[in-house]
Design a protein around this nucleic acid. Sequence first.
DNA 1: AAGTTAAACCGACTGTCAATCGGTGTTGTA
DNA 2: TACAACACCGATTGACAGTCGGTTTAACTT
Lengths: 120, 120
Amino acid sequence: MAVLEYLWSNGEFDTKGVHAVLGKARGISHNTIQSTLERLFKKKLLTRKKVSYAYVYQTAVARDELMGQMINDVVNTISKDNTDGMLAAFVDIAARTDDAHLDKLEQLINEYRSNQHKKS
Amino acid sequence: MAVLEYLWSNGEFDTKGVHAVLGKARGISHNTIQSTLERLFKKKLLTRKKVSYAYVYQTAVARDELMGQMINDVVNTISKDNTDGMLAAFVDIAARTDDAHLDKLEQLINEYRSNQHKKS
DNA sequence: AAGTTAAACCGACTGTCAATCGGTGTTGTA
DNA sequence: TACAACACCGATTGACAGTCGGTTTAACTT
């Protein structure tokens, strides 16, 4: 997460660049950062390209996309076919954090509907 | 999950009762079911009371609550204060499964608002 | 072309956690 | 008191994250 966070906020970086900040901060070896980057790459969470002879990594999914995937996983795990419960939970969670969220949610629904027209 | 699912759908049961259905179905020992029940109990996901000398287990949190907790965890893990992304994910997931869900979701929002008045 | 350095890559270890089981201790009840 | 039903305590396996060291590969330098 720290690595992803860093790349989301600071754009693309090579291992050395990430290590210079995160690694130093938590006293972690260069190799550890490298393995982490590679594993995230294998998971398709990062993209990379060779620049000179070091990889430069970049996030492959936006923060919100990843969150969406993860929330989706939760939903699938816990109530695959009970979609009504899912929707109810959404409303509940939204309201729990901040009452204004219900308005926001409604707004997003409408925005989504509008965008629907423009799609193929 | 299977155990939770069963208890959510069928109310309270003792180890034997759960095993009779789930255990048999997947060829799992009585002990396995029992350990699972106990671990869920330790995690506060189940409640239990002694009836004669066997525990009778019951869910401690509703399916929706658990989902709420889990989604909350995801959001906290990935971007603590970015609740907007969360709401967007909700709309996305709702719409992905079935377009009618957006209407349903809107409806639930309104129901929630109405119920709000009746609360303290 | 050889040497030095920077990276990538591979395998390993630890810690945690779920799934699974067997063995042992406990407790009502006949 | 003995037996059956049950709880409880490890133990094992398989994943997976975090971490690292060692080895190979590629590139720049002289």
